[in-house]
């Protein structure tokens, strides 16, 4: 059991960048890493940016007097095909509240109950028919759980590897709650944490003609990624002078054109004239030469009749 617990303990997805492209927004959760990393956070900010909790540590330290943490538990429920949902695992997390009222989930831990024999049978059935294995989480983690659920399903055949590999991608959202919560005693403006969506599946690929395969071990190998949203890139704004520079920039390349490129239309005729003149000049001595040699053909012509003359 302990071993299983160890296995189910939260894995750090530090080198997410190699796995996923969403480098900036991913929330990496691990106890040890958590305390070590730090970043700058503007305490003035009212609406929290996509928060990577690892960054928020210094803020917590700074405002440790006003910050309050509360533990919450989120129950993960699962269903085999069309069955009802049963509790399968729990996420326990810290709900961090900052002085400005924002709340985020940190220190997420995951503990999964092992499959019972009945569940194993059910799962095998799913594998045989390539049916859906579904999980769900309450949408609102703070108040009235059990109203709305976010749900996700995967074809059962996608999960088995050595053990059962699973990956949860949880998209959270910090919500400004206008209604004062009775249970959680906090000041006026209240924020909550909502789970917007959860995506469940195998961490690796699941190629389409899905092969029937029973897991070697009936234990789960769980990974979780928390995601918050990304900021949209700002529209580039060019100030007037940069535009002006650019405008000039368009004019600048003109002098860069080589002399040849600019004046080829004059140079070529000039060159031709020069060439012509040279040949002319060359021709003068040649002509003199041909003048002499030109006499010879004349002689040859003359020679034409002469043999005839001779014949006569």
């Amino acid at each position: 059991m302990k071993k299983k617990l160890l296995l189910q303990v939260f894995t750090l997805l530090l080198v997410i960048s190699s796995l996923h492209a969403f480098q900036s927004d991913e929330l990496l959760v691990d106890d040890e890493e958590f305390g070590l990393e730090g970043g700058n956070r503007q305490p003035k900010e009212r609406i929290p940016d996509p928060v990577v909790p690892t960054r928020s540590t210094p803020t917590r330290r700074k405002y440790s007097d006003s910050d309050s943490d509360s533990k919450i538990q989120i129950t993960l429920e699962h269903a085999f095909g069309d069955t009802d949902f049963f509790p399968a695992a729990t996420f326990s997390a810290r709900l961090k509240t900052w002085s400005h009222g924002a709340q985020t989930l940190t220190k997420l831990r995951f503990s999964r109950n092992a499959f019972t024999e009945v569940e194993k049978q059910k799962f095998q059935k799913l594998l045989e028919h390539d049916e859906f294995y579904s999980i769900r989480l309450p949408s609102n983690v703070l108040n009235s759980p059990g109203e709305d659920f976010v749900m996700s399903s995967v074809r059962a055949r996608c999960l088995p590897r050595d053990g059962l590999d699973e990956l949860f991608v949880i998209h959270t959202k910090n919500v400004i709650l206008l209604v004062k919560l009775g249970a959680l005693r906090h000041r006026g403006r209240q924020e909550g944490v909502n789970i917007l969506a959860v995506n469940y599946g195998s961490p690796g690929s699941c190629p389409y003609p899905r092969q029937m395969k029973l897991p070697a071990k009936w234990s789960f190998n769980s990974h979780t990624v928390l995601k918050n949203s990304e900021q949209a890139p700002r529209t580039p704004i060019f100030s007037e002078d940069t535009l002006g520079e650019q405008g000039e920039g368009e004019a600048v390349p003109l002098p860069e054109r080589s002399f040849w490129a600019k004046y080829w239309m004059y140079l070529i005729p000039l060159g031709l004239i020069v060439v012509n003149a040279i040949t002319q000049a060359m021709n003068i001595p040649e002509e003199q030469a041909t003048g002499q040699s030109g006499a010879q053909p004349a002689g040859a012509i003359q020679r034409g009749p002469s043999p005839a003359v001779r014949r006569r």
């Binding site: 949408s139 909550g192 917007l196």
Partner: peptide, 10 residues
């Protein structure tokens, strides 16, 4: 199969 719930407050 799946659902995404947008918090109605935000």
């Amino acid at each position: 199969i799946w659902s995404i719930v947008f918090p109605s407050e935000s």
